[in-house]
Write a protein that binds this DNA or RNA. Structure first.
Lengths: 137, 137
DNA sequence: GCTTGACCTGTGTCTTAGGCACAGGTCTAA
DNA sequence: TTAGACCTGTGCCTAAGACACAGGTCAAGC
């Protein structure tokens, strides 16, 4: 199987496959013409990688997991601990986005009824510089 | 004012100030010793930049805004249109994170009561490979 | 004047997870 | 054999700074 073939069969891009290959997550054999040749084992490996990415694991996490399982060990404990970390991160980012979203949409509606002003020596745009966040009671 | 001085006075890092300077958002004079010297005008510029960043504008947006206002034009229309774009993006990312968060926490709780398994030829980690998303009714 | 040490500087490299460009190779049809 | 379509690997690019590092600056002490 060639790069594009593999990628399409799992609904991803050739660049993604190449990327994972560069990182050593996939280890294709070298074909006669210098092209990389992916076996069925690589297909299931890629399938695993894509599932894990989809669940929020970082590529570096997946590398760890694959290493662990290549040593014949169960990767389950590692998987549980990693997802706990990632979930915490996601939660933080989520809260940050929530706050940002609120700020932005509050700014947007506030600005709709404010007039334009030309810049001055110490003011670039009064909309931004005078933005006041409406506190939730 | 030197880099670190400026940075601290506005609660940011020297690296951030250097970054904006590299991009041309700040234009310090060159001090005798080769150090960059920031005037009061730069202080208010940086203050503006930080406010805008805080509101979700990209650095490239801010560059545009500053250019506009340097030509003496009012940046307000541009500001309104840019934040609309950014808010839409933020909304998309927000929804994506919401979904991801749900998936992750569902996985986490599901996995807590599942046993460890050793890897096989076509299975790296059954937790991930057999993860089933619980559909919301 | 000289030295020590603390702090500061600019420059260059690194980060994520691939996307994109490009020069060249391969393969099929004519 | 040649044209054209498609494919390949390699290398550079992204956002917004963080970090490392070799060297410069400055005040205190001798």
């Amino acid at each position: 199987m060639k790069v594009t073939e593999l990628a399409k069969s799992l609904g991803t891009t050739a660049d993604t496959v190449r990327y994972y290959t560069r990182l050593g997550l996939l280890k294709p054999a070298k074909s006669v013409n210098g092209y990389k040749s992916y076996s069925n084992k690589e297909v299931s490996r890629l399938k695993f990688i894509l599932s894990a990415r989809n669940l929020g694991f970082a590529v570096a996490d997946i590398k760890q997991i694959l290493n662990e399982s290549e040593d014949g060990k169960s990767a389950c404990p590692l998987v549980r601990s990693l997802i706990k970390e990632r979930l915490e991160e996601t939660e933080k980012q989520f809260q940050a986005m929530l706050a940002l979203r609120g700020k932005m949409s509050s700014a947007l509606s506030q600005w709709e009824e404010m007039e334009d002003k030309a810049p001055t020596a110490n003011m670039v745009c009064h909309l931004i510089e005078n933005f006041e966040q409406i506190k939730k009671a």
